[in-house]
Every structure is written in C-alpha cells, then in structure tokens.
Amino acid sequence: MTVPALTIENLSVEFATDRGSLRAVDGVSLSVAPGRTLAVVGESGSGKSVSALAVMGLLPGSARVGGHIALDGEDLLALPPEALRARRGGAMAMIFQEPMTSLNPAFTAGEQVAEALRVHRGLAPAAAFAEAVAMLERVRIPDAARRARQYPHQLSGGMRQRVMIAIALACRPRLLLADEPTTALDVTVQAQILALLGQLKRETGTAVVLITHDLGVVADHAEDVAVMYAGRVVERASAATLFARPEHPYTVGLLGAAPRLTGGEGRLASIEGTVPDMRNPPPGCRFAPRCPFAITRCVAEPPPLAEVAPGHMTACWRAPLAQVLGAA
C-alpha cells in the first residue's frame, strides 16, 4: 500500500452567518495516493468545494477549520501562512471551473505560467518564459510559442483551461485539486481536457482530486470515489465498485437520476425534496428525509461511515442494501 499524498481526517469547516453558524463540512475523512484520481461527487452545498479550499488554505479568515490535513505527512493546518503560501502553487495546486476568472486578463498566457516558475522554482525571467512555452506545449496547445504571447481573451475556453493546467502543473505538484474543471466547457472540449489531465497524471505521478457532479466523468476518469451529501462523506469505494454495487441510498438515487444515452424506462429515478438547510440539518442521517428506505433509527441517530465490504465504506443504517431488497 503506497503512502497517500493527501490525507484528510475528520475535517470540519464552520462559517458564521448572520442567521447562525453553518457547518459546511462535518467530519470528512479522505485520502489520495500518488498517481491516482479520487473523484469527490456531490451536488451544490455538499461541501466538496469547501473541503478542497480548506486543503489549499484558501477559505476566508472567518471560517473555523478543524481536524487534520496532511500533504506528504506534513500537517497543513499547523503551517504558518508564509509556508502555506509556498506549498500553494508549489507542492499543491488547484484549477477551477471558470478559467476566464482565474486568469489575469492583463498578462499574456506565457507570462502567467512563467510567474509560477519564477516564484516557486526561482527561474530567471528568460528561462521561466522558455519553460512556460514548453509547458504550454505539454498541455497540447498548438503553436505554443505564439499562444504564449496572447492574452486570455484571445484564447478559447478550452485553451484557457489548458493554460490553467499548465500553471498548476508548472512546479510539478504532488497534489492537484480540480474543482469542476470542465463544467464550463463544451462536451467535445471537455473530453480533450479530461484526457489531457489523465495523461499528465500518469506521466508525473501527481495525486488528483477531481471534484465533479458528473457521474459519467467519474466512471471514465477516477479510480476512487467519495460521495458527499450535506457536508458528510456518505460512501467511499473504488469507482468500479461504486457503479456496480452502490451501498448508499443517495448514490443509488443519483445513479438513476442521470438520463441515459441509450434511453430507458419512462421516468427518471428522482430524489424527492431538496438538500437540507445546513444551518439546521436533520439530527440523524442527513439524507433520511429524502430516503425511501429510512427507518426510525435513521431519523434519530447519524450513521457512521463503516466498511460494508473490503475497501467499501458507507454511512447507512440499512446497509448492506440487500436486506431492503429481501424485504421487498
């Protein structure tokens, strides 16, 4: 078993709001090994992006963060701000959904990649720019030398996201956090970007956390999956296991809610109701109010994330779900 690049233990993030405090992440534990992709799946408000921002130390000062986050064994939450800043863009990097707002419109693509190389690897300006062009070639930007001298508005959405990836990977990070990196892109460009991320991961051995709402993306591009709901991890497994034998009712519903290309039975499985108000979450299992399998215990007592099969964890009092089918 390889040593994980990233280990998150019992992470919690709490925000003070004018209507009381809100615990956006509540006891999340995750780990990613080098050269592997962990997909974190969930809908808006599930806490997946907040968890990633906590790893990067990019949450606003008002956020109260608890638990442990270790990058290659080093406790990130204990680092002083300057040291954390050095890790950011160095040992770990993050790319976001909207490359236009992440890039600086006043600098060329090449200058922005070169900046990372100067700051984190101490390269001289000319050497940094030459290396930046090489990085843009590496992310398969055609005619990279010319593109390096262009500004973000002169590039297409797909090309901008390639520039972001080049910046993120410029310093050979141990960990790459990708938050919905292709959600703003067209489907043919999405396929290019995800294929590129996979190739670069295999070449560099970087550990990747891929945050997405798209289960198809997970199936194609991740080895491991964590499903989040209302601030908690509700299921963790290899991607193959999760799709073949999901053991959390939320995962089951989510898999049925996405319409299939091959058509299929009339109505989609739909999870009735909406996600809970996180200022006042249900006391037991947070999915219980929407779960067709919920029993009294689910409403009263939060289920722990427990192993249901080797390497397969689920937080459900009704697991394994075979008993639900047996009773039906």
Binding site: R245, V252, E265, R267
Partner: peptide, 22 residues
C-alpha cells in the same frame, strides 16, 4: 454507444423505490 450498465438488475430494483408514480 458504449454506455456501461455495471449495476444491473440489483441497481434497477433499488432505483425502483425512487421512481414515484406519474
């Protein structure tokens, strides 16, 4: 189309609980 269906019959039976009547 290469859409996989690894969940098979077990998953369909579980998902039936989520499919409300029209």
């Amino acid at each position: 189309l290469r859409e996989a269906d690894p969940g098979g019959e077990r998953l369909r039976r579980l998902q039936a609980f989520f499919r409300p009547p029209p």
